[in-house]
Design a protein around this nucleic acid. Structure first.
Lengths: 336, 336
DNA sequence: TTGAAAGCGATACCAT
DNA sequence: ATGGTATCGCTTTCAA
């Protein structure tokens, strides 16, 4: 078995209380001599304090839980990396929970995290149902949302303003001379990443006097590559006379790109496409995809910082709207 | 504060021992009446057993640690998802550790995991240095490697046979009629994903009597998109008369694809490309990338299964070589 | 400066 | 069927 504080005490011929004091550099009360003695014993035994026992007495586990659906691995892994970075910097570990977008698994995990006495949780990138919310409040632990938000409940969130970002993407297209612009969207039932982006798109059209001329939105259940392909096909089957499309995710945009390629539609010469997210794939696409960036890693970091602040002060701060911006690459053509 | 077993006992007018028995459905000794009583108290109080206290007495934390460098987020996140899936199925949580390919951070994490008393660790996708190995053995906890291996040490690993897989990729190209084949490789100093793949490539050439004709390997430090771009540029600057290239990773292959596109080289008409990994991006590429698949998610699952088996039996099983296979898409042309 | 002892929240053995 | 209690490894008064 692993050596315990007792073993160290025995070996150094002191009490466990002394060992504890020295290991926690607390209460200046001990001689340099005993310190050396104890440190030596620790070294020889390869002693590592048991964080479980510590956690029990301090009621602090130095652990947070992070829940993500694995929808787009690329999107959530960026968020995760951001969270992990600051958690580690602050001496905490993160328990990674992949909810697989399953209600049962999410609830399971929430319960587990509660039992494990995590000190905070980050819930990301998926809708917060009433059930989840109840489970979370039952845990009685600071919680912050990232890349999602809740209408009804007042959990702080860190996200981009989806409507604004979609507006910006659409306005960018308009500014480039496009008038007939279609949108490839997720579900309008998705009140976080669905409808708001549609709203932003329509608003931009409206504000530029384009409402009558062309508002074509095609919706899918999700935001995947396959959804992008399917929607793009629909768009062409519908015979819309379009010069640009705004895709609600980079994956969808790439799906559109691929489908266009197979249809021999040249991007951006015959059709312009703008994406959303700025995932790594967007710069790897052919042509490199113009897109609106969500600073995902930063969002993960901010969410974690907000959480830790809340854990310390006992009071969660305000939600944070992260800035989005257009990343200009080569999938959008300037119309004369 | 959260209710403890004492609170439940008090509320139900029984001893904590009884509560414990009932909550663990152990030792059939208790009446249905008290059971109902206790369950009721649990419900009313919203009691959740404290896993920390449990962990202390059982010396079992039901958690494992997973260490990955974040090099290629897409690759490691697949592995992670695989690991998480079986860990969750078996009632364990996973502490996610992103080493950022930093020695210090890796060692830090190993220490932390040791203190947190994780019951096992999975170390993935990066070289196992002597230092890491020592830290791991000091933890005295079952460990399995995934997508990497150690020459010197006998830790079990789960991976594809890199040489075989590279051989297969190259042989596939040859079978398609190619004779002058270049390779875009990671570092030859990388004894896991570097040299073995080069060896496989060369061996395939040799076995098909192509050694003199054309063996052109270009090496970079890593396996990134940017590395792929740089290497592809080098390849063309070198003026090699080539008909196909084998890239040691999908990211590199996509880098090559993009660069070729910019150079107006048509893939696969003028040049064939085969990748390695079968990441999601390979099917999203234009044209869809033919590649050799590593079953990443399965590798994560297998590694976890191997680990849990080892944790139960106290004896780690044998390493597992996972099957690779060629995924035929559209980046390789049949030469007449 | 140091040690003894009381907990932290559970489990499990020994009684009853 | 149920309760009392020692114990897990550590931190933290309280005394000495």
């Amino acid at each position: 078995m692993k050596p315990t504080i007792k073993d160290v005490a025995k070996r150094a011929n002191v009490s466990i209380a002394t060992v504890s004091r020295i290991l926690n550099h607390t209460s200046v009360g001990y001689s340099a001599k005993t310190e050396k003695l104890v440190k030596g014993a620790v070294e020889e035994l390869g002693y590592r304090p048991n964080a479980v026992a510590r956690g029990l007495i301090n009621n602090k586990t130095q652990t947070i839980g992070v829940l993500f659906p694995d929808v787009s691995g690329m999107l959530t892994s960026e968020l995760l990396y951001g969270v992990e970075e600051v958690a580690h910097r602050l001496g905490h570990s993160v328990i990674f929970c992949n909810t697989s977008s399953s209600g049962k698994k999410t609830l399971d995990y929430l319960q587990l995290l509660s039992e494990k006495r995590v000190e905070g949780v980050i819930f990301g990138s998926s809708l917060l149902t009433e059930e989840y919310y109840n489970a979370i409040t039952a845990m009685n632990v600071p919680t912050v949302l990232v890349s999602t938000k809740s209408q009804k409940h007042s959990l702080p969130y860190v996200k981009v303003d989806d409507k604004d970002a979609a507006y910006a993407a659409t306005a960018y297209l308009i500014q480039k001379g496009h008038r007939r612009i279609a949108m490839l969207s997720g579900s309008p039932d998705d009140s976080v990443a669905g409808q708001p982006r549609i709203d932003g798109y329509k608003q931009a059209l409206l504000d530029h006097g384009l409402n009558g001329e062309g508002s074509f939105v095609f919706t899918a259940d999700g935001f995947s590559y396959e959804d992008g392909r399917a929607l793009f096909t629909q768009l062409y089957d519908a015979g819309r006379d379009i010069t640009a499309v705004f895709a609600a995710s980079d994956e969808m945009a790439v799906g559109a790109l691929s489908t266009a390629y197979q249809m021999n539609i040249r991007i951006p010469d015959e059709l312009s496409i703008i994406g959303y997210d700025n995932l790594k794939i967007s710069e790897m696409a052919i042509p490199p995809l113009t897109t609106v960036e969500q600073p995902l890693r930063d969002m993960g970091k901010k969410a974690a910082e907000l959480l830790f602040e809340g854990m310390e002060t006992g009071m969660l701060g305000k939600s944070i709207i992260m800035p989005h911006r257009i990343i200009e690459r080569q999938s959008v053509k300037q119309l004369v």
